[in-house]
Write a protein that binds this DNA or RNA. Structure first.
Lengths: 324, 324
DNA sequence: CCAGCTAACGATAACGTTCACGGGAACCTT
DNA sequence: AAGGTTCCCGTGAACGTTATCGTTAGCTGG
């Protein structure tokens, strides 16, 4: 039975109860100096006893920084992101940080708007999959809030990065296809900006016109495969920009009476959850999405502690299943 | 080139520039009364001109309420939730609300902790898939912050609800299986608390021992199907608590040399993205997850406007594909 | 024994809003 | 014409922290 008026316990209440000033309470909470170990413990005990929770607003007002980090990504419903997000959430929660999510649909306007919202909210830091924003804008954001960007080069010395090694991943995929006897390889590239690594790596060992671009969706993959095969009927190995495209390719193949993994090999990228559950199960380049999320937070936290911007690279791993 | 010291534009700056008091500026922003249309427009213009953004901290300090809502769910990586979350994000963004996400893994302790964090952060409202928290605790949370719970009865007159009509959905599934000639039906129930509707609806027309419970995962589904068939070899129609279980069942069937949709029918629940991409594609009860997310926010917003708690029910729809 | 230092703590002043008032001018009402 | 409303708008205070600076007691060194 709450006694009606639920009045807030303030720092002054704690100070009174502990017989100190509120400044001392503040010192005890924030591990600042100028406080003896004895009173520190006593204050902490009274805080516990009164169940005092500092007001995030009042604190933020002074410090201009909230205990919250922003996660901006194109679309949480895209199967690649939930696992990443979970990694971010877990690592952030372990550090007492709340996470607010911004979906942008890879639209430059939405990404900019998210950036504004982030600085307005006084977020402690931001983690972002920015796909459309140009470097100057990104650098500007990085100047206003500690920032770590994923899968993209740093626009500025101040912003940290975590990247998957797409070049190695692509090589792994191509070499596997070759080792399975597929001499002529084609690629289903995602028609997205700022993601040239996979295509570039593919082109290191394959001709230019063996690449066809499409929206990185299942439907896009089906269409792209048909157009690829129409152009080059001799192709028997297909590398896709991501699993969605690869799944579309597998489906188009089935519709044409062919089965991936037999006459023709298909390799995807990302290893999203459903890849293992399909028939045939998808051979794909696995990137540890959960680990990516955790790493992003780790790098951000490191930055928050005043260290210079880090740049990490996550290694890919080929998962061989039925489709190639 | 930012001119170094980026000083904040405050409400006083706007007031000065517009030749009014800060209270008038506040009135203009918040659509309060006691202001003439002329000065309102003038103030709004100066706000635009100075690119003034009110401090969320200062505002929250007075109002004790931030422009942020919480979304509590078991696991964003569970394929059911990303689409829901996207609906929540979009609807919230349309209302200028930020969303912070809390993953709980359906653990009572984590759910309680999320509740604490929510009131500490002064969230404007909360949306939750609470699976473990008991009613009193949920009601207590609902007393501290406007709350709408999903897929669960209201613990209290103050908390709003949005629910999927599981009874109808289950009936749709069972009737479809029956109409396909499957006389004996079994059910793969999810071994989760507080979700008895599907099982109850199934038991209305089927015997008790045709239900076997398992963790709502692919692996759980495979195991559950084997145990179900071991007990009742005559069963030819299987209804699963969710798609993950159904997928596991389909896989176990395949491993046993049988194919879902031919001798034996399998119907899932939820229609997660991958359901349509499997082979055979999964027949399942579709609930519009994106719409669920949107509705949750809508109901919360309605509550935030001071209206009494609503209780909405979302209708299911059977999607017939290959597995039954 | 005193100047000088340090450790530990307190008092005051912000931070930027909104709330509760109060007040003047214009407009009615009788 | 006096009193009452209504419409606008401004003034002070308060929300709960932390930064800055001041103060006191105890200690050190000469």
């Amino acid at each position: 039975m709450d006694s009606g008026r639920s009045v807030r316990v303030t720092i002054d209440d704690v100070a009174r109860a502990a017989g100190v000033s509120r400044q001392t309470v503040s010192r005890a909470m924030n591990d600042k100096g100028d406080i003896s170990e004895a009173t520190r413990r006593r204050v902490l005990a009274t805080i516990e006893e009164l169940d005092y929770r500092p007001s995030a607003f009042a604190r933020g007002m002074r410090t201009q920084r909230a205990g919250t980090v922003a996660l901006v990504l194109p679309d949480i419903a895209n199967p690649f992101f939930p696992a990443v997000a979970r990694g971010v959430f877990d690592a952030a929660a372990a550090r007492g940080l709340a996470v607010v999510v911004h979906n942008t649909d890879a639209d430059a306007g939405a990404e900019a708007e998210a950036g504004r919202a982030i600085v307005d909210a006084g977020a402690a830091g931001a983690i972002g999959f920015f796909e459309a924003l140009d470097d100057p804008a990104l650098a500007a954001l990085g100047r206003r809030v500690p920032l770590v960007v994923a899968d993209r080069p740093a626009p500025d010395g101040a912003v940290a990065t975590v990247r998957a090694d797409f070049r190695t991943g692509t090589r792994l995929a191509c070499e596997h296809l070759t080792s399975r006897g597929h001499a002529r390889l084609g690629m289903l590239d995602g028609a997205v900006e700022n993601k040239p690594e996979r295509r570039r790596a593919f082109l290191e060992t394959n001709p230019d016109d063996h690449v066809v671009a499409a929206p990185p969706t299942v439907a896009g993959g089906a269409a792209a495969l048909r157009s690829l095969l129409a152009r080059h009927p001799g192709i028997t190995g297909v590398f896709a920009f991501n699993d969605l495209l690869a799944i579309g390719a597998v489906q188009a193949l089935r519709a044409a009476g062919r089965r991936a993994g037999e006459q023709i090999g298909v390799v995807g990228y990302d290893d999203i959850t459903m890849a293992a559950l399909l028939d045939p199960p998808l051979t794909t380049v696995h990137t540890d999405k959960y680990e990516l999320g955790r790493t992003l937070v780790e790098v951000l936290a490191h930055r928050l502690d005043g260290h210079p911007a880090e740049h990490r690279v996550l290694a890919p791993r080929l998962v061989v299943r039925g489709s190639a």
